[in-house]
């Protein structure tokens, strides 16, 4: 895969506060999620990428363009959907998107055609002719999404695209993001707090905490645990079952959502678990290879000290 965004030791200070601390990253095509607790430096990183903020030190490039030097070219390649409401008051939805296209090089008529096309893709109907001030949260999200997309940029930076959406709208938004990445070949940097969204669409994850990169890898690689194990879910007294497993000589530990993790991956292990379950009088709901959950990955990463120790 090609590295579309490459950052090398990027540091950003606001006075004495260090918002980004020697951030080095490579972001490839596909969907990359940018995660981190509040104040982690996500917004700062996005603004540095967009040229809205200058890095205090370090270098980076977006496609073939140097950060801080080729801001205009970078902005032509990037569609940015901000988290906050940002619309031009007094304009209708379609006019807002049209202006976005005009500000990105298109003539008025072509900009209008694109605005309609992209609003169709975003599932916005006749409400596009209403002034933006009358829009609901979901409609404003769609509008911001359309504004980011209208000039057909190869890279999309989406800041909290699903926040405030109801479940069906959220699913639609995630589907659109997947279509753009998988079918239209766009690189998407998804900045969100909603971990199930990340799990649903992301190819890779970057976790920032205290301005530093804690995790940056493909999601499928991150999901593989350090040691092989099985994840067991039972119907019945899970604690008693856990004790029985220990008495049977197995190495076990409680997992998330009532699951039990049993270390090891030899052929007889599943059979042993079934036998213990029969003896304990519990029903086995599922036995599967353990995967690190995103929640575990996230919590481990943000709890880690800057020197790498938990």
């Amino acid at each position: 895969m090609n590295a579309l965004i490459e950052l090398n030791e990027i540091t950003k200070n606001y006075g004495s506060h260090r918002a980004l601390d020697r951030v080095s990253l490579t972001i490839e095509s596909g969907i990359t999620s940018l995660l981190g607790p509040n104040g982690a430096g996500k917004s700062t990183l996005i603004k540095v990428l967009l040229g809205l903020l200058r890095a205090t030190s370090g270098k980076g490039r977006l496609m073939d363009f140097q950060l801080g030097r080729h801001n205009r070219q970078i902005r032509e390649q990037v569609g940015y959907m901000p988290e906050d409401d940002c619309y031009l008051s007094g304009l209708s939805g379609v006019e807002s998107v049209q202006v976005s296209a005009q500000l990105s090089r298109f003539a008025s008529l072509e900009a209008l055609r694109r605005a309609h096309e992209i609003l169709d893709f975003c599932g916005m109907g006749q409400e596009r002719y209403r002034t933006v001030e009358t829009y609901s949260t979901g409609m404003r999200q769609k509008l911001r999404f359309a504004q980011a997309l209208v000039h057909d940029p190869p890279i999309l930076i989406l800041d909290e695209p699903t926040s405030g959406l109801d479940p069906s709208e959220r699913e639609s938004m995630l589907n659109r993001i997947k279509i753009l990445a998988r079918e239209k070949g766009k690189a998407v940097l998804l900045c969100t707090h909603i971990l199930p969204d990340v799990q649903a669409v992301s190819d890779a994850v970057v976790i920032l905490a205290n301005g530093r990169v804690r995790v940056a890898d493909r999601l499928d690689r991150l999901s593989v645990p350090m040691a092989p194990s099985l994840r067991v879910q039972v119907l019945g007294d899970a604690e008693a079952f856990l004790s029985q497993l220990e008495m049977a000589g197995l190495t076990v530990r409680p997992g998330v959502n009532g699951a039990i993790t049993v270390d090891g991956l030899h052929e007889e292990l599943a059979e042993q678990i079934w036998q213990v379950a029969r003896r304990a009088g519990v029903g086995v709901r599922s036995i599967e290879h353990s995967r690190n959950s995103l929640e575990e990955i996230f919590l481990t990463a943000v709890r880690e000290q800057p020197d790498g120790h938990p």
């Binding site: 967009l50 902005r75 940015y80 940002c86 619309y87 976005s100």
Partner: peptide, 9 residues
């Protein structure tokens, strides 16, 4: 709306 305008070429 500054960000909306400023991120355009």
């Amino acid at each position: 709306s500054w960000v909306y305008l400023a991120v355009r070429p």
